[in-house]
Write a protein that binds this DNA or RNA. Structure first.
Lengths: 189, 189
DNA sequence: CCTTGTGAAAAACTTCACAGCC
DNA sequence: GGCTGTGAAGTTTTTCACAAGG
């Protein structure tokens, strides 16, 4: 969250940012931000604010985002395709290096520069340096596919299917249910 | 969240569900769920659990999801297209009735049964019964487009662009930043 | 002046424990 | 036996207030 906002400031050529400015942009309170940053180890300059480059470096370090992280994409449907070509992953240093699907129609085709492989050839992702996977399959197939990913040595799964999946606790799952996010809007309206 | 899990149970033909079962499925604690449901007004049956149909009805009521909610989609790029054809909105009673884009290449074409219109013809969405919008435009265009939506009388915006947008406080914004969600995974890995 | 950093107070949330009911 | 509903306890998070520094 911070990373996105601060990177934006860097692109605008800003060198320093105050907790107040960030608070306004992110709709938070300023002491909250200072407290968060103090957990990172303090490096703010009193009267000025925080150095943008230092902040980005430190956050990337804490999030273990140093260098490039390889990720696999499972599911080459419409959503999968949109994700494969989504430019936003670059900011966090992610690269989708392999794409898998079950459909024989799709296998062998390319999305961007990456060839779609059969899910049967998932193999050991860990050995190929892939620790993260993005799951863009129908809800019915999500659990089964997640289990394959775990077998393949994946450590984190971004689940785009509208369901919860159960995995060993050494594996971290983050679920995004787009319809659900839309569903809570009318409540506030 | 509950709606998704409970709807799934209904499709499976289950009539009643206990807080314990839901807790297991959603990875929560059972008193938590009972407390949430008690805010809805209590209607559990001691010794049995909660009636699935009653629960769904009540949750839809609280979320103001009764009937069909019309939504507009802004941005007919890859992500927009995937969202337009995303089947998951149905569960929550959403229907994307209008699609807009800036690109002359796309205007006039159809996604599914819905024609892509020029963003210039956004007009008064409120009068056409549209109170929600899904924003699937590049980050640079998000703020400007959001302002147009607010002018058009929209009350809730689901923002898929990787940035925060500022709107009058009568308008509710829900932001989904896919890359960010992926970005927090390595931290736990 | 402007900022950060932090202890203390307040609020929100989570968990526990158990009475009451089927 | 099983399960709900809820007050009380515990924990975490958020907010405030202010000393201290450029």
């Amino acid at each position: 969250m911070y990373l996105r906002a601060i990177s934006f400031l860097r692109r605008q050529g800003q060198d320093y940012v105050s907790s107040r400015d960030l608070a306004d942009q992110l709709h938070l309170k300023s002491p909250q931000i200072r407290k968060d940053f103090s957990y990172f180890g303090a490096f703010g300059v009193k009267g000025i604010g925080y150095r943008v480059d230092t902040l980005i470096g430190r956050i990337r370090e804490i999030l273990k985002l140093s260098g490039t992280q390889k990720a696999a994409l499972i599911g080459a449907g419409r959503l999968g395709k949109a994700l494969a070509l989504y430019p936003g992953f670059g900011l966090y240093g992610f690269e989708i290096v392999e794409i898998f699907d079950v459909s024989p129609k799709k296998i062998g085709k390319k999305i961007g520069n990456t060839k779609i492989q059969s899910i049967k050839h998932l193999g050991n992702l860990e050995k190929r340096g892939i620790r993260l996977a993005i799951l863009a399959v129908p809800a019915e197939a999500a659990q089964e596919t997640a289990e394959r990913l775990v077998e393949g040595g994946v450590r984190g799964i971004l689940n785009m299917a509208p369901c919860y999946i159960t995995v060993p606790k050494r594996v971290r799952v983050q679920t995004i249910d787009i319809a659900m996010e839309l569903g809570i809007l009318p409540y506030y309206v």
